[in-house]
């Protein structure tokens, strides 16, 4: 009873702080200074129709590199923590066979979902979407495959290969920016092309392809090691 009261007191206190923030919030008519700069010059400097992509990949590209490393670190810690078991404890669980609807539907849908994921990260500079979203969609296709065939083992060799190649290419493209253009991860190492077409915005589509592949591989790795762990008692 006392505990419940304390919890309610804490939530009420937090509510008070938040209410203060809410009162201070005022809907705006004008962009902030930084946002205004991006809105005015982003399209011309970077050539990407989607300004969020311009900010994420070019203006704040270094942060995206850090973000990808955090995701990699998560996948690494996760597979380490899940595989840390005594050998004699491991027993294979008996699983019910999956229903026919799921197994056939997964065969039909998996390639389509993968294609949608690839579409999303290739068009990241034109439409809402990008490497992270596309990678997550690809990982959801892997998840569907794992649900249909729980015994399926995801090859760590292929995932490791895709991940390291795409991570390395991302950094090489970034470093090329220092040599050929204005700085690290500058996208003007390639021609900016016509605004609003698929082959525009310099290196952004290339970078997003590698980010998408890397995120897809990492998330598939996370899903795969969790599913592998579920199959054991």
């Amino acid at each position: 009873m006392v505990k419940k009261f304390l919890i309610l007191l804490l939530v009420a206190g937090m509510g008070l702080i938040i209410f203060d923030l809410y009162q201070a919030y005022d809907s705006k008519e004008n962009l902030s200074t930084l946002g205004e700069y991006y809105a005015q010059n982003g399209a011309e400097e970077v050539g990407a129709a989607n300004l969020v992509t311009a900010v994420v990949v070019t203006y704040r590209g270094l942060d995206t590199l850090g973000e990808v490393s955090i995701l990699f670190l998560t996948a690494a810690i996760l597979s380490f923590a899940l595989s840390f078991r005594k050998e004699d404890e491991i027993e294979e669980k008996e699983l019910r066979p999956t229903s026919e609807i799921l197994s056939i539907a997964s065969q039909v849908l998996t390639p389509i979902i993968m294609l949608v994921g690839i579409y999303i990260f290739i068009n990241g500079h034109l439409t809402p979407g990008g490497g992270f979203q596309g990678g997550a969609v690809i990982a959801s296709a892997i998840l569907l495959m794992l649900m249909a065939k729980p015994k399926l083992e995801i090859s760590h060799k292929i995932i490791g290969f895709v991940e390291s190649i795409s991570g390395l290419s991302f950094i090489i493209i970034g470093a090329l920016g220092i040599v050929l253009a204005g700085g690290f991860l500058d996208n003007r190492i390639m021609s900016l092309g016509t605004f609003g077409t698929l082959l525009s915005a310099g290196a952004i589509p290339l970078i997003y392809i590698f980010v998408g592949l890397k995120v897809g591989a990492e998330l598939s790795n996370i899903v795969g090691s969790m599913s592998h762990n579920q199959n054991e008692k």
Binding site: L31, S32, L34, G35, E36, Y38, A39, Q40, G42, L51, V52, A54, V55, V56, R60, D63, T64, E67, G130, F132
Partner: peptide
């Protein structure tokens, strides 16, 4: 000229 769009910076932040 400034196009009539919302601020892209918080959106990029939220993506992270």
């Amino acid at each position: 000229t400034t196009p009539n769009i919302v601020d892209p910076v918080p959106q990029a932040l939220v993506l992270t």
